[in-house]
Design a protein around this nucleic acid. Structure first.
Length: 650
DNA sequence: TACTCACAG
DNA sequence: GGCTGTGAGTA
């Protein structure tokens, strides 16, 4: 007789209950050196090519081919090049300051000798969009196969293979090709199909024929025990076959290799997928779970969510030795979580007496002890959280030196952020086939002294879809309010950090009008005459469609940028005015005083003294501010273009 | 809404 | 180790 019950098996058919069954089959799949793989595939290299993905001077992902030269994620690109000149560094895509689309600059980067081919941090912001896109493609394959997938990060996923395994067991004819030995399994299938089972009854012993079932990948089995003993092993074997299939599909269609862990719980899956890399899968039988946790590679801090302060404090509170602490805890507190809880409480009390700070909240010690008690046994069950809508999106830029020292600089970065956020919002909409409208925009700055200040405001736009212009409009308003409020008190510029985020998403299920719009655009694009195109389609980010000829009606004379509607043109002009306002508020230097509104690019790239004279003059009334910061009041511009409605608090 | 902290890759 | 990002908690 099996040690499992019919109810354990039947639960696999339920998304809500499968993870809690002792027969659960979950898996964790991780794309190896993901950013490096994306670049390798994008640029057409093979797996043998020692590609590394670079951001400024740092290597942020190392392909396995490059790891053979001893290159690690910590290395700077210069250090890596000393280890081997064979490596192929590829820089991430970047936004240029003041532009709202990203681009790859292949053949450029900080390691280039040619100064013109370097990408200065001051002028660019890294874009991770390409990796998100590839991540979505991978995730789509997962969801095509599997009805319950949790996206754990840009390169990781958890799968609940319960239904697939169950169905394969019950309905797959090829599972047991030799009919002679299949009789037992057929009888079990009949019992299930006819509903002649008792949920509380134990399952029969597994049929002999099933003992020959094959695992895909590596089964962790240091003591060479028989692999198939009970139904949990059978189901894990089926799960390993399924993950193999899914992973092969990903490699075949997208070119990415993955590492995979198959086990009963998420935490064990996660450790298992990390066990052998790259391009491998590791199966942890339930009977081998504790042996696996004790293999020497893991400690308390290896568990998800215990990798930081909390884990360190736990180890400290439990007086656990650094190595083998999982086994130590399991054996020292072997009967119940309660002993563990009491021990932690006592230890923390003595810490309190010594006025030591702790991140462990007293009210949570009970649940923490239960969790730890289960974790060290590989028995901590947590559900897969089905795909949920992200709750916020941020676009962020850290500044070097004094590269963000004026409001003009700020607004230029806001333009980048607006482009990135609107593009990501649109991708989100396509992914869910929903309309997504954020209701709140937040702008945050951090001064060199570490002070942060943020301002949030509503995004009231309705009807049409969110674009970078409308985000920029709100963001500009917020940053100006921040600047005027903060600038008087403390040393404001140069900023150490600036970011913008959108949150409080409203989701509409009907996306008809937007889908139609996309369809029309695509059609127009195909028959578009390049000569009449107003904006070069060479702009790379396909998330941002160029303004098409049929839509072009309004042009900003100085910029020669064109807009579909007068409203859009108006907003664009407001941006120019905001730029000029900011120069005044900020007490801009001599060069930027004279910036023509048509010379945005010039302003943002090189501050040339010979910049043309502006066409609209703004009177400047200087007032003396504290700490030598120039405070400037401005008169209303001659041609305000309705700007005051956006900057009414000025 | 404003801000801080923890955590992860 | 710097950069980028998400989410929880607090007042």
């Amino acid at each position: 007789m099996s040690k499992f019950k019919w109810s354990d098996l039947i639960k696999l058919n339920s998304k809500e209950e499968a993870y809690i069954s002792p027969l659960a089959v979950l898996s964790h799949i991780d794309a190896n050196a993901f950013f490096a793989q994306v670049e390798e595939v994008r640029c057409g290299y093979t797996k043998d090519a020692p590609v590394v993905c670079v951001q400024w001077n740092s290597i942020i992902a190392v392909s396995y081919a490059a790891r053979k030269y001893g290159i690690s994620r910590m290395d700077t690109i210069q250090q890596a090049l000393k280890k081997s000149d064979k490596i192929i560094p590829i820089h991430t895509a970047v936004f240029r300051k003041g532009e709202d689309f990203w681009q790859y600059h292949d053949g450029c980067g900080s390691w280039m000798e040619d100064k013109d081919k370097q990408l200065p941090n001051e002028l660019y912001k890294v874009s991770l969009d390409p990796y998100r896109r590839e991540s979505r493609k991978i995730f789509k394959i997962f969801t095509q196969f599997c009805d319950l997938a949790e996206k754990a990060s840009v390169d990781e996923v958890f799968l609940d293979l319960g239904r697939l395994c169950f169905q394969k067991l019950m309905f797959s004819k090829e599972l047991i090709p030799h009919q002679k030995n299949a009789e037992d399994l057929e009888r079990i299938r009949e019992i299930f199909i006819n509903g002649q089972y008792q949920l509380d009854a134990y399952l029969p012993q597994i049929p002999d024929s099933l003992r020959k079932i094959k695992f895909e990948g590596d089964v962790y089995n240091p003591n060479a025990i028989p692999l198939i003993d009970d139904w949990d092993d059978v189901l894990l074997a089926l799960g390993s076959q399924l993950t193999q299939l899914i992973r092969e599909q990903i490699e075949k269609s997208l070119g990415y290799t993955t590492s995979c862990g198959v086990a009963k719980t998420k935490t064990v899956c996660k450790l298992a997928s990390n066990f052998k890399k790259p391009n491998a899968q590791t199966v942890i039988l339930n009977r081998c779970t504790e042996t696996f946790l004790d293999c020497g590679k893991f400690e308390i801090t290896s568990f998800w969510s215990l990798g930081g302060l909390l884990g360190k404090e736990l180890i400290d509170a439990l007086n656990a030795p650094n190595s083998g602490s999982i086994k130590f805890i399991r054996e020292k507190w072997s009967s119940s979580p309660n002993d563990l809880k009491q021990y932690i409480e006592v230890q923390l009390s003595s810490k309190d007496a010594n006025h030591k700070s702790t991140v462990i909240e007293r009210s949570k010690i009970g649940s923490l002890a239960e969790k730890l008690f289960a974790l060290v046994r590989g028995d901590y069950w947590s559900p897969l959280t089905p795909q949920t809508m992200v709750k916020s999106m941020m676009s962020n830029k850290n500044m070097n030196g004094d590269s963000c020292k004026t409001l003009v600089d700020c607004i230029s970065w806001l333009e980048v952020f607006s482009g990135e956020l609107s593009s990501r919002l649109h991708e989100l909409e396509q992914e869910y086939d929903k309309t997504v409208i954020p209701r709140t925009v937040t702008v945050l700055v951090r001064t060199k002294s570490g002070l942060t200040h943020s301002k949030s405001g509503p995004l009231t736009k309705t009807g049409s879809k969110i674009d970078s212009q409308c985000l920029l409009k709100v963001g500009s308003k917020l940053i100006m309010e921040l600047g005027t409020k903060f600038g008087k008190e403390v040393q404001y510029y140069p900023l150490q950090n600036i970011n913008m985020s959108v949150s409080h998403f409203e989701v509409f299920s009907s996306k008809k009008s937007i889908v139609d719009m996309f369809g029309n655009q695509a059609q127009i694009l195909e028959s578009d005459d390049p000569a009449t195109r107003s904006v070069s389609p060479a702009i790379v980010d396909p998330g941002r469609q160029p303004c098409l000829s049929s839509e072009v009606k309004f042009e900003c004379q100085p910029c020669r940028l064109t807009f579909a509607t007068e409203k859009h043109l108006q907003e664009h002009r407001d941006y120019h005015v905001a730029m000029r306002l900011s120069e005044n508020i900020n007490g801009a230097d001599e060069n930027s005083q004279n910036i023509s509104i048509g010379e945005k690019r010039l302003l943002l790239t090189k501050r040339t003294p010979s910049t043309p004279v502006q066409s609209h003059s703004i009177k400047r009334i200087k007032t003396k501010g504290p700490k030598g910061i120039k405070q400037t009041k401005k008169s209303k511009p001659e041609s305000s273009n309705g700007i005051m409605k956006y900057f009414s608090k000025q």
